[in-house]
Design a protein around this nucleic acid. Structure first.
Length: 867
RNA sequence: GCUCGGGUGGCGGAAUAGGUAGACGCGCAGGACUUAAAAUCCUGUUUUCAGAAAUGAAAGUACGGGUUCGAUUCCCGUCCCGAGCACCA
């Protein structure tokens, strides 16, 4: 056995030993409290890892190991989000089946993870592309299909119950979300054809077919989700994206909008992520108001959050995409209006956003402002969006910047109705006064009211007069759930001759093999070419596949019981492992995965499958590790550091320790290759506490009070720091302790053995090795290595008795400036201390004969003399 | 533009129920060991001024104010950086 620290031999030896003994395999154990610590599901890319990737895994592994040592039964699994575009793109390029390349990537990924010494229970590995897994993804989809949302009960209910309701009561009191179908009676329902029934039920199902404007990317031959489009270009590849009507499956996430906002108050996530989700859901409280179109029986319904400004509404604007646009236009004006509308419709998002000034066309019609009775012109204008609110606005140019700009270009009247509470407006206005505080004027019965009061007063009047109602609108859109792609979960359904879908009960519906992976270009997936597969005795299959986020929206539940063939997870496993206690991953998933997972969790909660409705109790977003030049690590900049190289040169323990030492886990910070030397030197120093030259130097001599103080101070610090995920400071504490012990030439088992346990979560290999060299090896015929592994021992308790001091060297300040330091017994009285301080030569000097005004003593902290 | 974070040595960063600013590490400088180098170890290292030195003084946590015996920490204003959202009525 070498007296030197030879990390490569040590790490290899223990890696094999741990694997052989299945050290990290866990089972339900009702006698132990559970702890579930999870890393975000990685996509097994072929390009390998850089040192930034494992950052979160190292942090979660430290917590997992710490919790185990504290006596918790820790669930710490790993798996792969294996469906998705990159594997498919690779298949298109190389003609290799994505399942094969994905499997190769997974193998390599797992090797890299194992090198770094993570304590994953690999018997629980899940892959979203495995039929044994996606069988349940398909099953959950069928649950969405078979449920509707009851707005009164605020939960999902079986569609059968709704059909029952319809056949007895018709649509009356059905409380179905969103419920904007034409009302019908029970008799009518019973008389409806299957197709008519389907069309109504489709408007109720939580998974439904939606004719929507989608983001169509020609280059990729697919629809993209809103979050996959950045500034009118595809996030991946930066291809142009246009808007296109398409029928596809969607999930009715907006039914859960309120609960998704509310739940944020009950979870420990960063403010940033909560705020992003709130913005994304974009709830606004307001009113819908009917404006009569002058000279017709028609009305235009607007949505506004500022009914207090209605006396200043001087025109209206309708969105060009509005279906029934022609109804709100005179015949004479129709040619110019429809020309404008067509142009807008065909313009891409980028073009429309690039437009700096407001455009529009007069419709020739006027509406009556219900409050003033005055007619106001109706325009069609691109700046009004069809898919938000009602697609129609009342424009108040004095108090809205966009309306102001529009009024300026069309020379429309600008009537101010709100002024600052304690000053006057400068008239004429040069810009909109859009503050949400102020006082009403020019506003009839609202004059003198504050904005808040005027909103309630105006709303009350609107409701009382029957002009409208209070409503809530959301920015959140329904979640498009179809991709015209090959490498994803097939939908478990077929359509009959009339196009009515029905669920296939026998799961999984396996993804068939194809010859050509490339999208067809006509908007259909490669599966549509497989006529034999598509045509079944029961009907025609859906050929879209599910999006990448389908499998990742529930994988954390599967880990609790990953090999269960009957259920997505057993009741017992779900009950025992419960919520994820700590979830670590990047913040880029704020509006995708993290929102969808919360949605699915709430849905499964409604159905009674799980007893909690938030998946991740505590979420931590790790920062990025930048290249040494301070730029993002990428091949393009040539600044990528490969963890394999670091492990080979310094060892996995050093990589783990150094990544944690760089700075707070949540911060982005640059990598510095020289910095890792510091960690290496620390290992050397620590090792030399055990070895003096060639010789083993640890003794059983009892430790001194001073040594015990160092140990217990460190136990307390490390325990607190891990709980707070403050790993950088715990590593400093280790270094301080080792420096102090080296100074004392302290080589006692009583100190070093607990120090090793403290270090074990950070440096699993080094700690295990020295633990065994200390003699914790059990008998040679003991086959179960975990009975003697440091990773199954107990975390030391700190004894505050060793930490209390008898004396403290007080800094003595004169008017707040430290001028001297005097040691006092901590039990000394204030009078005693004051007398001694005032008699001290330095104090006398700095008081310079001036009288003392005040004497401040903070016990154990500071003394300050005020003169 | 709006929202949320954040500005501390040459660098990564410590320290906030208000109490000795700069822990720990990197880098740098000097020294020990060595024929020499590497490795290792030791010492110093916020800035300015005075001093040969020990040391002493002043300033200092983006900037300007305020509260306080005392502010990196709390309050007000300004500037800068990062992230998110962005015609959402």
């Amino acid at each position: 056995m070498s007296s030197q620290y030879q990390f490569s031999d040590i790490e290899k030896k223990w890696r094999l030993a741990w694997e052989k003994s299945e050290l990290y395999k866990i089972e339900i154990d009702p006698n132990k409290p559970k702890y579930y610590v999870l890393d975000m599901f990685p996509y097994p890319s072929g390009s390998g890892l850089h040192v930034g990737h494992p950052l979160g895994y190292i942090a979660s592994d430290i917590v997992a190991r710490y919790k185990r040592l504290k006596g918790f039964n820790v669930l710490h699994p790993m798996g792969y989000d294996a469906f998705g575009l990159p594997a498919e793109q690779y298949a298109i390029q190389t003609g290799q089946h994505p399942a094969i390349t994905t499997e190769q990537n997974i193998k390599r990924f797992r090797e890299q993870l194992n090198t770094m010494g993570f304590s994953f229970d690999w018997t629980r590995e899940v892959k979203t592309c495995d039929p044994n897994y996606y069988k349940f993804t398909q099953w959950i989809f069928s649950l969405f299909f078979n449920h509707w949302y009851d707005t009164l009960a605020q939960k999902a209910k079986p569609i059968k119950e709704l059909e029952q309701h319809f056949s007895v009561h018709g649509s009356k009191n059905s409380c179905v979300y969103p419920g904007d179908f034409t009302p019908f009676s029970a008799a009518q329902w019973r008389a409806f054809s299957p197709l008519q029934k389907h069309e109504i039920l489709n408007q109720c199902r939580l998974a439904f077919m939606d004719e929507t404007t989608v983001n169509w990317c020609e280059a990729m031959g697919s629809i993209l989700a809103n979050e996959e489009v950045v500034n009118g270009l595809s996030e991946r590849g930066e291809h142009p994206v246009i808007r296109k009507k398409m029928k596809q499956w969607s999930l009715r996430i907006t039914a859960y909008a309120d609960r998704l906002i509310e739940g944020l108050n009950r979870i420990e996530w960063s403010n940033a992520i909560k705020e992003i989700q709130r913005n994304w859901i974009g709830k606004s409280q307001g009113a819908e108001i009917e404006f009569v179109v002058r000279g017709t029986l028609k009305t235009l319904r607007v949505f506004t959050t500022r009914p207090d400004t209605i006396f200043g509404a001087t025109f209206m604007v309708v969105a060009p995409e509005l279906e029934n646009l022609s109804e709100f236009c005179t015949e004479k004006n129709w040619p110019s209006v429809s020309a404008y509308a067509n142009k807008s419709r065909n313009r891409s998002e980028i073009e429309r956003m690039a437009e700096t000034h407001k455009t529009g066309v007069f419709t020739g019609l006027e509406a009556i402002n219900p409050f003033t009775g005055e007619p106001i012109p109706i325009y069609v204008g691109e700046y009004v969006l069809a898919n938000y609110g009602t697609g129609v606005i009342m424009a108040v140019p004095a108090h809205d910047e966009r309306d102001f700009a529009f009024a300026k270009s069309f020379n429309l009247p600008i009537i101010p109705v709100i002024k600052p509470a304690h000053s006057e407006l400068d008239l004429p206005l040069t810009e909109a006064f859009s503050a949400k505080e102020g006082t009403c004027f020019n506003s009839g019965f609202l004059d003198g009211l504050s904005v808040a009061d005027a909103i309630s007063a105006a709303t009350a009047k609107i409701v009382k007069a029957g002009w409208g109602k209070t409503t809530v609108h959301y920015k959140l859109r329904e979640a498009g759930f179809g991709r015209q792609r090959y490498w994803g979960e097939p939908f478990p359904l077929v359509y009959d001759a009339q196009g009515i879908p029905s669920i296939l009960e026998s799961l999984p519906v396996e993804l068939p093999s194809v010859e050509i992976y490339k999208p067809t270009g006509n908007g259909k997936s490669p599966l549509s070419a497989l006529t034999q597969w598509v045509n079944t005795p029961k009907g025609i299959r859906e050929t879209d596949t599910m999006p990448g986020w389908a499998g990742s929206s529930w994988y954390f539940l599967r880990y609790t019981d990953p090999n269960n063939p009957q259920d997505f997870a057993s009741k017992e496993a779900l009950h025992y492992w419960n919520q994820v206690d700590l979830y670590i991953g990047g913040s880029e998933h704020a509006t995708g995965h993290l929102l969808y997972s919360r949605f699915w969790t709430k849905f499964l909660f409604d159905l009674g499958f799980i007893a909690w409705d938030e998946p991740f109790q505590r979420l931590v977003n790790q920062g990025m590790i930048l290249g040494e030049d301070g730029q993002k690590m990428s091949k393009r900049w040539g600044n990528v550091v490969n963890p394999d190289d670091v492990c080979a040169a310094y060892g996995a323990d050093a990589l783990r320790m150094y990544e944690m030492f760089l700075g707070p886990i949540t911060d982005s910070k640059p990598w510095n290759t020289q910095g890792i030397e510091g960690v290496s030197r620390f290992f050397g120093k620590f090792w030399r506490l055990f070895y003096h030259g060639e010789n083993w130097a640890v003794t059983d001599i009892p430790a001194t009070k001073e040594e015990l103080k160092i140990l217990h101070k460190t136990i307390k610090k490390i325990s607190d720091d891990i709980e707070n995920l403050s790993f950088n400071t715990s590593i400093s504490a280790f270094m301080v302790a080792v420096n102090e012990l080296t100074g004392l030439q302290s080589r006692k088992r009583e100190i070093l053995e607990p120090m090793l346990v403290l270090l074990a979560p950070f440096t699993p290999y080094l700690s295990e090795e020295l633990w065994h060299r200390l003699g914790n090896s059990g008998s040679s015929n003991d086959k179960r290595i975990d009975s003697m592994s440091i990773h199954t021992t107990q975390w030391p308790m700190h004894d505050s008795g060793y930490l209390t001091e008898d004396y403290f060297a007080y800094p003595i300040g004169i008017n707040g400036k430290t001028r001297a330091q005097i040691e006092f017994d901590l039990n000394a009285s204030e009078d005693e201390i004051q007398a001694a301080v005032l008699g001290h030569a330095m104090v006398v000097k700095w008081m310079a004969g001036k009288p003392m005004k005040k004497f401040i003593l903070v016990k154990g902290r500071i003394v300050n003399v005020v003169v």
